[in-house]
Amino acid sequence: MMKVLVTVKEVAEVEEDFVLDGTRIDDRFLEYDLNEWDDYAIETAVQLAEAGDDVEVVSATIGPERCEETIRMALAKGVDRGIRVWDDTLASVDLLDVNAKTEIFNAIIAEEEPDLILTGVQAHDDSFGATGVSVADAAGYEWAAVVNALDLDADAGVAHVRRELEGGVEELTDVELPAVLTIQTGINEPRYASLRGIRMAQRKEIAQQTLDDLGLDEGAVESQITLTDMYEPESESDVELFEGDADAAAASLASVLREKGVGAQ
């Protein structure tokens, strides 16, 4: 029996035109959806479950009731059950920082004792990009970040992972389980939830837990970070029109690209 925990987040997506309300974006201009990286993490976990004999996939999220729709879509794709952490204390927190998330997920890990934890590399709304690695540190798990290929040898307790580094360098690493892997987009092609999966997901469990249930108090989610301002940067754009026939235009384009540093050495 192997247990895989996937942390997922419902993120806010901002419409093209929006209005700021202090340090927040007005709710009217936000739509909520599953964090893109998490979709790849879910697919990774579900593929492990399909390939293995006895693999349980559990998803964990922090968020209000609204998130259940998103979590249920993960269940429809093959996750076995979900855990959603929320209560009045969490609802009153302005900014849930990495430490707070780490405390919460760490409590869940203590309870669930997963062999493998998959997170997205980052969440595209607040983009801390740190939760996965921070959770590994707190839980005492091995970790690998920005994983774009995974070959799991569950019997040997090793995850062979590939990480794409800057400049086209790829690193192959063996990580001993239990481990946290932060999953990069492109590692696979996330599936659509099948109509049958959507039906089955209605009967799967999403357990709601409070901080109290997890043995935490409000001190655990007090933030050391304060959001001080939010503004739209002035944007500059630069347009250059290429004229002449295709050869001349292509040559001009090539020289501009070279100037900007695009192309082989």
Binding site: E69, R72, M73, A76, Y192, A193, L195, I198, R199, A201, Q202
Partner: peptide, 16 residues
């Protein structure tokens, strides 16, 4: 609509 019907509509819309 039921939760299932809402999910059906959303996922099919994403596929489409």
């Amino acid at each position: 609509l039921t939760d299932e019907q809402i999910a059906l509509r959303e996922e099919v819309s994403r596929f489409a």
